[in-house]
Amino acid sequence: MPNKDIKLNRDWKKQDALKALPTRDGFGEGLIEAGKRDGNVYAICADLTESTRVDGFKKAFPDRFVQMGVAEQAMAAIGAGMCLAGKTVFIASYACFSPGRNWEQIRTTGCLQKTNLKIVGAHAGVSVGPDGATHQMLEDIALMRVLPEMTVLVPCDSIEAKKATILAAEIDGPVYIRLAREKSPVYTTEATPLELGKAQIFREGSDVALIGCGPLVYQCLLAAEMLAEEGISACVVNNVSVKPMDEKTIIEVAKKCGAIVTIEEAQAVAGMGSAVCELLAEEYPVPISRMGMQDRFGESGEPDELLEHFKLTAPHIVLVAKKILKKKSIK
């Protein structure tokens, strides 16, 4: 059963009854809210205003919206220059281009200067679909989490994306928010907590922990249900704050469950799962399997097809969880 304190939508299990929205929608709403709360919030977009959902902010605050054109490197540095003049600046594009193309500018003008630059990477992951590998960003979590001063947030649904955006505006320093293009179930509620540096236990369990980030956390919940039917108690952790990561909760979960599966729509190398491995290797080693893209690029296809093809759905999580349980018993 889901953790009551998390206050998930009571219909969380009935996917058909849930609204399906992309996390970028929640970002768009959160950006308007952040703009209402603080007149110093600006948004810059690199010719993708509608698809990154900055259009709502543009309409609400036309004089605080800046059209950059296709120039992601300058977008980061010009945004940082606006930060130096006292503003909080969201820069939005597809994750492949920002932070894909402008990493050095983010490093120097965002992190090293510790400006209030908020990088919003939309269309992350293979679920971008038919556009194919060029537009399916898989390395952004790795690129951003390695940077000192950077905060990395990967919201699990549209409602959490809205909260993450409002939170990002309040954080002192650079923040990266990772968003998805494709619709996914909206199963958290306005009452679901979101706190910087906190992982949320969506479901208590004691045999194995499924630690996810982004829309795939929902697949973890479904997998936990399937595992329960087989008598396996799976804990589900929404690791939304990839950096700073909630070390306390991750270690507690490792101690309680003794085996972990991480899952993300990104390269399994150097991403969220790797962050979990780094922590537990030093603090409390347990068997871990990292699910994600296994050192390869994506390709064209329908989003659902691709998630299935790359084994990132609930039934695959179940298989991997059962495998890791065997390793646990060997130990």
């Binding site: 490197q73 010009i78 220059g81 606006m82 130096l84 503003k87 120097t108």
Partner: peptide, 15 residues
């Protein structure tokens, strides 16, 4: 890193 100062001056001048 060469080139980064010019756009920052532009961002500040814009404001």
């Amino acid at each position: 890193p060469l080139g980064d100062g010019a756009p920052q001056s532009v961002g500040t001048a814009y404001i």
